[in-house]
Amino acid sequence: MSSGTTELTWFKSSYSGSQGDSCVEVAIAEQAVHVRDSKDLSRPPFAVAREGWVPFVRFVAEGSEE
């Protein structure tokens, strides 16, 4: 994605744990949803195309039930 992640507004995902151990933040941009680990900002965020966001979240949610 051409958009720099420093220009994004990040917020804690509703899928993050309430205990503070799963800190996932997301930022919604025009063409993608960006995802990062707020506890380790040295790791680069990744982006999911907007049309792929719902299938991505569904896949992650289904995988976490195993």
Rank of each mutant, 00 (worst) to 15 (best):
A27N: 05
A29I: 03
C23A: 11
D40G: 10
V24T: 01
R36W: 12
S16Q: 04
H34Q: 05
W53I: 06
H34P: 04
W53G: 08
S16R: 02
Q19R: 13
V24M: 12
Q31N: 14
A29L: 00
A49R: 13
F46V: 05
D40Y: 07
A32K: 01
Q19K: 15
F46D: 04
E30A: 14
A29K: 09
A27H: 03
W53S: 04
R50W: 00
G17E: 00
A27W: 10
Q19W: 07
E25G: 02
R50A: 10
D37Q: 05
E51S: 08
E51M: 09
R50M: 13
S42T: 08
R50D: 10
D21H: 13
R36S: 10
A27K: 03
S42P: 10
R50Q: 11
A49I: 13
P45M: 00
I28Y: 02
G52Y: 07
S42A: 14
G20M: 09
I28N: 14
A29E: 06
F46I: 01
A49E: 10
Q31K: 12
G17N: 08
G20D: 02
H34G: 08
A29V: 07
C23G: 05
S22Y: 14
A49T: 08
S42K: 09
D37C: 03
F46A: 03
E25D: 03
E25Y: 03
A27S: 10
S42N: 14
P44R: 15
V24W: 02
Q19H: 13
R50N: 13
S18E: 11
E30T: 08
A49V: 10
R43L: 13
V33A: 00
S38C: 11
V33L: 08
K39C: 00
S42W: 05
E30D: 15
S18Y: 14
S22A: 12
D37V: 02
E25R: 06
G52P: 03
C23Q: 12
P44K: 13
V24P: 01
A32I: 04
R43Y: 15
V35N: 12
K39P: 04
E30P: 07
S16P: 03
R43H: 06
D21Y: 14
R36P: 04
S16Y: 04
F46P: 07
P44V: 06
